[in-house]
Design a protein around this nucleic acid. Structure first.
Lengths: 337, 337
DNA sequence: CTGAAAGCGCTTACAG
DNA sequence: CTGAAAGCGCTTACAG
């Protein structure tokens, strides 16, 4: 019951090995009779074309490398699941590489990726140096950033409209009559963290009510929690906090409640992402939704387009977010959804 | 800047192509001088051996197929992250396949997996028919079940000690003086769901206090929530509920609170898994911990052992769990950790 | 439509 | 230690 090859199928079917190959190659020409004989023999033998051999000669592995830094933020598992499903429907599969979000880590991983002859690389929650990007590009491997932007725009990237989302959060809090607004920002080493902060702070400044405090929460639960405790223990604590993502916002809500405060009454909290947990009763978090499904679908389309046409110029796509109003922040009159 | 092959490196280094191959093959013999020349040329050209070509001739792809049904239960992302890290350290990578947990789905996926010439298959949260298992085995591809057992033991499987864990939950609740104990069980189509239920119910029966109600929560949030509401709206509601996993237990806690009850006071709730969220203040769930890290490490060891020796008899390994006491259930005297 | 043959980029006996 | 050569399982011009 060892490996069965196209040659064995050919013998059994009484045709040439090339004929077998053609029957399993979409778009190749074979007579109905040949197809039938081959399919029959293949079924009897349990034959499946060897994807690796095919990849060698065609130069297409139908494997997409996915680089991930962490999965503790629920946004990523959700995205990965859909990514895998969508890609599978298109005949591709995901080879996963995890790495600390350091230059060295990403560098090593990119090298490994290339030796696997992947057809493309998706970087999720990972930043990349531009010369590394250049290397992939010059090796003819398309790279798409998911949920992360890049300053010099040499790579395709799919994000939500983070600045606009930041503004939206500010407008909502302002409309709610808050006067002392703070921001526990997303990691400033990431474009998402910087952009959300920029949009948020700009909108507050435009309204003549600059943030009373802006700190980097690093996208980490512990850091966000410490930030929240620090903020609340000052002489003049904030009456509202915009938090760089939901994962940190949950920590902030936990910290506030532990200090005896009621979110949405004593302090308003707004997050970013709208992960499933945000809608669970225990948190019921008001947040800016990142439309994961559309982001993933767009990422896949962009990837496949670049695989088809490696010359194509990289595209930076922003998907509009949406404010999801729940109970963790005071609801201004007329804003109810 | 196209693909660089071993032949190009050989020319530049002034050696044969075989020599280049040997330099990149661990354990092959090459003189120090050759190694040096080749490494230099390779570095200059940016050469990396083509893993696919290597896989073709060696028959080893260094790819492990991972089949997943869903990622919404936080237990799996955590496990996948570590699995990827551990495997990467050993020079392997994960090719992800997602599938609905149906016979058809798994069947199709297994076929795909084989055509990718994976060195092994890890099934997580997925059940498999025994003839499918036979097919993989006879194709020489080791299969290891993660967090799922199998009745006929033809496959290796790594789980926690689910029956013992169920018993532990029962003993804890009994010691807490509860008299009306219910169980919202894990999906009865899975070994984990059945085993936890069996251990739990046996222990209750042994104590002469059988469960007042046992229902299947299907490992789904909505189902668990509905079950909790049903249980609590009867004439004689339970004073304690053991829930088949944390993911459902969170739903139960949400439902109880929505009904105005205080978990740990009005009703005790115990979960299973100890996912990170269980320790967050909003839930603070008493639960049976599944030692993810050890389960993953064991899975990898088992997998690699079977790759090294395909003849090896499959092993079923159970890893001891542990009760983690928090505030969602009444704490019996002397049980504090 | 079909078969014989070359070639994808490697590893690995086989001689030397 | 080293090179020439066969071969892993396919796809794809090339003739017919």
């Amino acid at each position: 019951m060892e490996k069965v090859t196209s040659l064995q199928v050919a013998k059994r079917a009484g045709v040439s090995q090339s004929a077998v190959s053609r029957v399993f190659t979409p778009g190749a020409s074979a007579s109905a009779k040949t197809v039938e004989k081959v399919k029959k023999a293949a079924a009897e033998l349990g034959y499946r074309p060897n994807v690796l051999a095919r990849a060698m000669v065609s130069g297409k592995s139908r494997i997409i490398g996915l680089v991930l830094a962490y999965l503790d933020n629920q946004f990523y598992p959700v995205a990965v699941e859909r990514l895998s499903n969508v890609l599978q429907d298109r005949g591709y599969h995901i080879l996963v590489f995890t790495t600390p979000n350091s230059t060295d880590g990403v560098d090593k991983v990119m090298h490994d990726l290339m030796s696997y002859q992947v057809d493309g690389i998706i970087l999720a929650s990972v930043s990349i140096s531009s010369d590394l990007a250049d290397r992939a590009t010059s090796a003819g491997i398309p790279v798409v950033l998911f949920n992360r932007g890049q300053d010099d725009a040499t790579l395709s990237a799919v994000t939500s409209a983070n600045r606009a989302g930041g503004r939206l959060a500010a407008e909502f809090l302002l409309a709610g009559g808050h006067r002392r607004i703070a921001h526990i920002a997303g990691w400033q080493g990431s474009s998402t963290g910087r952009d959300r902060q920029a949009g948020f702070c700009d909108a507050l400044a435009d309204a003549g009510q600059p943030a009373i405090s802006v700190v980097d929460g690093m996208y980490k639960r512990e850091v966000a929690m410490a930030c929240a405790n620090d903020l609340m223990s000052t002489d003049a604590p904030p009456d509202a906090i915009f938090v760089g993502n939901d994962h940190m916002a949950f920590a902030v809500l936990d910290a506030l409640r532990a200090a005896g405060m009621v979110p949405g009454k004593d302090v308003s909290v707004v997050g970013y992402d709208d992960v499933p947990l945000a809608s669970w009763e225990a948190y019921d978090l008001t947040t800016i939704r990142q439309p994961v499904n559309r982001m993933v679908d767009t990422t896949v389309e962009t990837m496949l387009a670049q695989i088809d046409n490696p010359q194509a110029t990289p595209r930076q796509i922003e998907i509009e977010g949406e404010l999801i109003i729940r109970s963790s922040a005071r609801i201004p009159d007329g804003w109810t959804q």
